[in-house]
Nucleic acid binder design. Structure first.
Lengths: 151, 151
DNA sequence: CTGTGAGTTGAAGTGCACTTCAACTCAAGG
DNA sequence: CCTTGAGTTGAAGTGCACTTCAACTCACAG
């Protein structure tokens, strides 16, 4: 068990395609040493970074924000468990908010299933009036935009 | 209060940009009558369709699947409250699943915050081993892909 | 009748997160 | 040494959900 991983090793162990790993490197999310022949060799600690990236994506964070978060790690030493715990904790609020919104949507949907309304004028799900629009692009939605987007 | 809406009316009342409404029409999600001068005029019932579309996106459903769902509505008559209730109910399971996954992620994250692990080998968040990959593209992830992707 | 804001079209552009491709080099077992 | 699978690169392509643009027409208040 050598302590440096090839891109194939990291791909298999993380479940992330080699092309995605190279993409993450271009964005500055992970890093690799190079062999004399210019091949990537990853420290085992990169596994943790990749794990953090995938988990963060689950939470609904963009790669750009993930990069910012990872940049806050100390670069002098290998991040400690506490470092990782801190980063993970910082997503906690977002996750709570996502769960809260989705749960509200479910409850509202249950109410609407009862009445069959789906009315944009009256249903609690929707837009509380017409006095929207004209607040710049994307600023006029009541329902949060599908945070879903990527991938 | 006339019973037909211009695209601007529908946009303001639904909170969806005119360009998006035209896009929805191209995809067959909504429909419009035309004036003699070729301008769109929407029946008020289209408001409900747009509401359903936005709600469905919140649930994490793609426009293509939403189209399929809408296609199941009776086209002879204006959909009844029950028709809408049925469609909404069909998303209920997906919403439950999304909430379940996110809640599990939160709990796991809490556990990991405690130990600071984020280990791909041991953490309950991740990949239960290396025996993945080679099951076709995208089939090797433990964590569901970020259903998030679009918009 | 006219000016103006609202509407029309198809084609192209955007942003994100990747994937695919071609042409090439590396690493390691037999 | 040679073959073969794994790795390298930059550029281009993909899919989704839209937005933007240019060039044009409509609808309606005055």
């Amino acid at each position: 068990m050598q302590d440096l991983l090839t891109i194939g090793d990291l791909s298999v162990r993380s479940g992330v395609a080699p092309s995605a790993l190279r993409y993450y490197e271009r964005l500055g999310l992970i890093r690799a040493d190079r062999t004399g022949g210019n091949q990537r060799r990853y420290a085992r600690s990169e596994l943790r970074r990749v794990a953090f990236i995938r988990i963060s994506q689950q939470v609904g964070v963009s790669l750009d924000e993930i990069r910012a978060a990872l940049d806050s790690l100390p670069d002098a030493r290998t991040p400690s468990p506490q470092d990782w715990a801190g980063l993970s904790a910082s997503w906690r609020g977002r996750l709570d908010e996502r769960i809260r919104l989705l749960t509200k949507l479910r409850d509202d949907l249950d109410g609407c299933i009862g009445c069959g309304c789906l009315s944009l004028q009256h249903c609690t799900l929707s837009n509380p009036g017409d006095a929207l629009a004209g607040e710049g692009p994307g600023a006029r939605l009541m329902l949060a935009r599908p945070a879903e987007s990527p991938a």
